[in-house]
Design a protein around this nucleic acid. Structure first.
Length: 955
RNA sequence: GCUCAAGUGGCGGAAUUGGUAGACGCGUCGGAUUCAAAAUCCGAUUCUUCGGAGUGCGGGUUCGAUUCCCGCCUUGAGUACCA
């Protein structure tokens, strides 16, 4: 009987679906284990062999945990809101919901054929109203919350209102907007409703603000910082510029410290934690206030102008010889003297013209201008010239720095360039060539009361004195900015928000979801409003609590018919993906009444193992942590971190193939003939190239898409064949190097694909795909089959296992278990190959060996093992069979070479039985030592055995 | 520039706490089977001037280093005028 993998795989996939083999239960005596993949965006191109890598790894782990007696939750779903579907809709007019549905069908078919043990009863799609109802609900919860620094958590906005009406805002310690005016309880209670709403908005965890955003004209939308790569949009590579817009923002900065601290409690890779740490960018220092010295211009405007700066080096405050403001700083116009006005204005204009990208690319050129104004040093009272310079960024800190040229290289370069004094405040430091930027081995000098102190002591003292004078305070700064939450797109979650007198109002939970309206086109309106502005029905009727046509909006000023405009923006891609892992905790059919049932949340807690790409380090993974912490603060969930352990699978790369067209001709040269000739390398589809890099010219000429281009082309062969060039690149449709899992499954089977993807190399490493190698693992599966099934059928019997059989089995159990727990799936594939080769050589037919071997292999190759398991006479799925227990006694070898050392010096090795105890080894070696000592005419020395290592003889 | 990860045959990659480097697979070569091929099976395969040399390069620790330490080089990823 042959190994008919296609039949076997189809049979068992059907069996699993019909029997709901992998359906997880929300109550069980078994311990729980939650294994999650980052859910895919269902793109039109379908899956290529790179996509399932992480899914295969997590599936192996999930199946292993089931064998180990865990109640495993292993769900899958789709991140189905997104830009590609919308862009496709703009081009074709096809509704994104329809393309998304089509794409999901393709994905589902492709996932099913690989044999994953997903519990599909819990599927999530972020674009369905049943799901985004709760995304909208979470948004409302954020709106209804503020961050109390005293309790260090988010609280209901009502506690803030209570404080305001009882004592005003003087004692409120909240994370909020800058420059909030202070008011008393009396004032608060006297404010009208609109004023109160405006103030509260400055405290809410999601708030409307006029912010400078990254505007992408080509995409017609704003982008978050993590959606921009090298100054262009991550999707499409379009230019991005700065623009002021009123946008919803998420006050993630409130959680900066907890997001940082939380990293110590989770099992993620160091590099990923490091990325998040850098992104959060904590720096500890002080804010220092400099008073501007009044001059001709200023006296007319304001007497007591102040400039706040942030510094990490308050210890060097006596080294300040100038100040630098960002050209965009709000005080620049005010403080500039008439003599300097022309120069400063020219400089500000020149900087504004340069794009963000130019400014980033050009860090070498030093430029700036003197404002003519001076500030007073808080301690020495010396006048300090105030400059502007584009090396100071408006967006970080206060947009102003105290420049200490002796201690900061950029200040140093600036001072040298403009001939500003560089006072040295470090004892023994040479600053003739460059600044002394180290914080270690610092002794402060020329600094009055700070002299002789180190960095730590001087900083502390400087801060203390500044605080006493009211000229500054200790301060921690974070790079993490609040996240813009509005997108000018159609295919996203609508906000549950309408506006009364320009103030946002939340729609009550009872009336959610607010579903996406139909629009004719998916482009922004002619007046520049987001696509939702095209909807005929997009206003909120507070009388009926329904969405109604916009035409009913009150037209006459002062009239109020209770119908108001709805928010036109939609939420960003990361909204739905920031909480989907909680939604899986309940079956689709049982969702609805609550965002997730408390029982389910309490049972599953958080994700035990999360597998996905590292490209989400500062996006999805940070936002999910933020929302989880928020939901925990408001007692909606019980956990502080969403993902306990995280593994980043490496990318599978494609091997592109090139043909070489000689310049100016229609002639293509085989690779070896190119030499010095001028040629243009052109990608060709990899399916037309065999394992020896030989091109099938006929197939290429018959290609439906490009065949015509080559009809009249001449191909110059070498040794009778056309050889292509090869290059390893990212697998991508545009590089024609995509290998589809469908073809692999058809030709070799899903089990071969699964084994081969694992065999390719370490999970976390990037590695090139090479289809030729799959014959190795496919051959292994055939050998495995032949070990169980002969010409006439099953050849497994009840023969008792030999010592060698047992040794092979138990060494395999040990290795495979270790490998799975360490996520080194590649080496266990080798282990299986060795085991099957050994058992074949041993002519093993014993069921006592061959049945446990199937269980070991079943996470990797679930179909063939199910089939053989069933042929061995077992009822039900192998998935629930217990993992075999390792017995060390079977591995005892007859002897081993022990290195013997004298006083740490290696002298000889001694062959001793493997199972000898420590005492016995010592005794045996001692006997040898006595003999040697007698020959060498000395007294014998003491023998010490270091277990597993070497035998030491000391004296 | 900074941070992190990694450098081992023709290729993908193995090597417990430092203990016989190159497991396993691909490819290549040779053989068996076959009229022939596919498929299958068996053997060889780091280099070598046959002395040895060898895990990016140069040092160090050790009886012993792919593994630990120091200094370089290269590649990949992330980040960037962060005060």
């Amino acid at each position: 009987m042959q190994y008919h993998f296609n039949d076997i795989e189809a049979k068992w996939q059907k069996y699993w679906a019909e029997n709901q083999t992998f359906k997880a239960s929300n109550n069980s005596d078994k311990p729980k284990y939650y294994v999650l993949d980052m859910f895919p965006y269902p793109s039109g191109a379908g899956l290529h062999v790179g996509h399932p890598l992480g899914y295969i790894a997590s599936d192996i782990y999930a199946r292993y945990k089931r064998h180990k007696g865990f109640n495993v939750l292993h769900p899958q779903g789709y991140d189905s809101f997104g830009l590609p579907a919308e862009q496709y809709a703009i081009q074709t007019g096809q509704h994104p919901a329809i393309t998304t549905e089509t794409n999901i069908k393709t994905y589902r078919r492709q996932l099913d054929q690989i044999g994953f043990s997903f519990d599909w009863s819990r599927e999530v799609r972020t674009s369905t109203p049943e799901y985004y109802k709760w995304t909208q609900w979470i948004f409302i919860q954020l709106f209804e919350s503020w961050y109390n620094n005293d309790s260090n958590k988010a609280e209901d906005i009502s506690t803030l209102v209570a404080k305001f009406s009882a004592e005003g805002n003087a004692n409120v310690n909240a994370v909020c907007d800058d420059n909030i005016e202070s008011f008393s309880a009396e004032q608060w209670n006297a404010f009208d409703s609109k004023k109160q709403q405006e103030i509260l908005l400055q405290y809410r965890l999601t708030y409307l603000a006029e912010t400078e955003v990254n505007w992408c004209p080509a995409l017609g939308t704003v982008l978050a910082n993590d959606e921009i790569v090298n100054g262009v949009s991550e999707r499409g590579g379009h230019p991005v510029m700065r623009k002021k817009m009123t946008q919803w923002s998420m006050r993630i900065s409130a959680y900066a410290e907890r997001l940082l601290q939380g990293l110590d409690t989770i099992d993620w890779t160091d590099s990923l934690k490091e990325s998040q740490r850098n992104w959060i960018g904590k720096s500890v220092g002080a804010s220092v206030t400099f008073n501007v010295i009044p001059n001709v211009t200023l006296s007319a405007v304001e007497e007591s102008l102040k400039i706040d700066v942030f510094t990490t080096r308050p210890d060097t405050i006596f080294g300040v010889s100038f100040m630098t403001l960002a050209p965009e700083h709000e005080l620049v116009q005010t403080i500039t003297t008439p003599e300097q006005k022309a120069e400063v204005e020219a400089y500000v204009l020149a900087t504004a013209k340069r794009s963000e990208r130019d400014r980033m690319a050009d860090v070498k050129t030093i430029s700036g201008a003197f404002t003519g104004a001076y500030a007073e040093h808080p301690f020495s009272k010396e006048p300090i010239p105030i400059w502007i310079g584009d090396y100071v960024l408006a967006g970080y800190g206060t947009g102003a720095v105290m420049s200490v040229p002796c201690g900061d290289q950029r200040d140093y370069d600036f001072a040298k360039h403009f001939n500003i004094a560089i006072p040295n405040v470090f004892e023994g430091a040479d600053i003739s060539e460059e600044a002394f930027a180290s914080k270690d081995n610092v002794v402060i000098a020329n600094s009055d009361f700070l002299n002789g102190m180190n960095y730590k002591k001087a900083s502390k003292r400087a801060i203390y004195d500044l605080e006493q004078m009211g000229q500054g305070e200790g301060k921690t700064n974070y790079r993490l900015r609040d996240a813009v939450f509005s997108r000018q797109r159609y295919w996203g979650e609508p906000f549950p928000v309408y506006y009364v007198n320009g103030m946002p109002q939340m729609i009550d939970k009872a009336h959610l979801p607010i579903t996406l309206p139909e629009v004719e086109k998916y482009l922004p309106t002619e007046t520049g409003e987001p696509p939702l502005g095209r909807a005929d029905v997009w206003a909120w009727d507070t009388n009926t609590n329904t969405v109604v046509p916009n035409v009913n909006l009150s037209a006459v000023e002062g009239e109020d018919n209770g119908i108001y405009p709805l928010e036109l923006n939609t939420m960003p891609g990361w909204a739905g993906s920031s909480w989907y892992f909680f939604s899986y905790m309940e079956e689709k059919a049982k969702r609805g009444e609550d965002f997730a049932s408390q029982d389910a949340l309490n049972y599953w807690e958080n994700v035990d193992l999360y597998i996905g790409g590292s490209e989400h380090a500062t996006g999805h993974l940070l936002y999910s942590r933020f929302w989880t912490k928020f939901l925990k603060d408001r007692a909606f969930v019980g956990v502080d971190e969403p993902f306990k352990k995280l593994i980043n699978q490496g990318m599978i790369l494609g091997t592109s193939a090139f043909i070489y067209r000689e310049d100016g001709t229609n002639t293509y040269l085989s690779k070896g003939l190119v030499k010095d000739k001028k040629v243009a390398p052109i990608h060709v589809k990899v399916q037309y190239v065999n394992a020896s890099d030989e091109l099938n010219i006929e197939d290429l000429k018959n290609d439906a898409e490009f065949g015509a281009d080559y009809k009249d082309a001449e191909f110059i062969l070498e040794d009778g064949v056309y050889k292509v060039g090869r290059e390893v690149e990212k697998m991508s449709k545009s590089k024609y190097n995509v290998v589809s899992p469908d073809a692999i499954c058809e030709q070799y089977g899903a089990d071969s694909l699964r084994l081969y993807e694992m065999f390719l190399g370490p999970l976390e490493q990037a590695k090139p795909w090479n289809t030729a190698g799959i014959t190795g693992v496919h051959g292994f599966l055939k050998k495995l089959w032949k070990l169980y099934v002969g010409e006439a059928g099953l050849i497994v019997n009840d023969a008792s296992p030999t010592k060698d059989n047992l040794k092979t089995l138990h060494k395999t159990i040990k290795k495979v278990q270790e490998d799975i727990e360490n996520f080194s799936f590649n080496t266990s594939v080798s282990t299986f190959m060795i085991a099957v080769n050994e058992l074949t050589a041993q002519k093993c037919t014993s069921k006592a060996i061959l049945e446990p071997l199937l269980v070991l292999l079943s996470p990797y190759a679930p179909h063939i093992t199910e089939e053989l398991f069933s042929q061995l006479g077992n009822e039900g799925s192998i998935a629930t069979a217990p993992f075999p227990i390792f017995e060390a006694s079977h591995l005892v070898e007859s002897s081993k070479n022990y290195p013997i050392s004298f006083n740490g010096k290696m002298r000889f090795t001694l062959e001793l039985p493997m199972d000898m105890s420590k005492d016995e080894i010592e005794k045996t070696v001692m006997a040898h030592e006595k003999t040697i000592a007698q020959l060498e005419g000395r007294t014998p020395k003491k023998v010490i055995v270091v277990p597993g290592k070497i035998v030491n003889i000391v004296g």
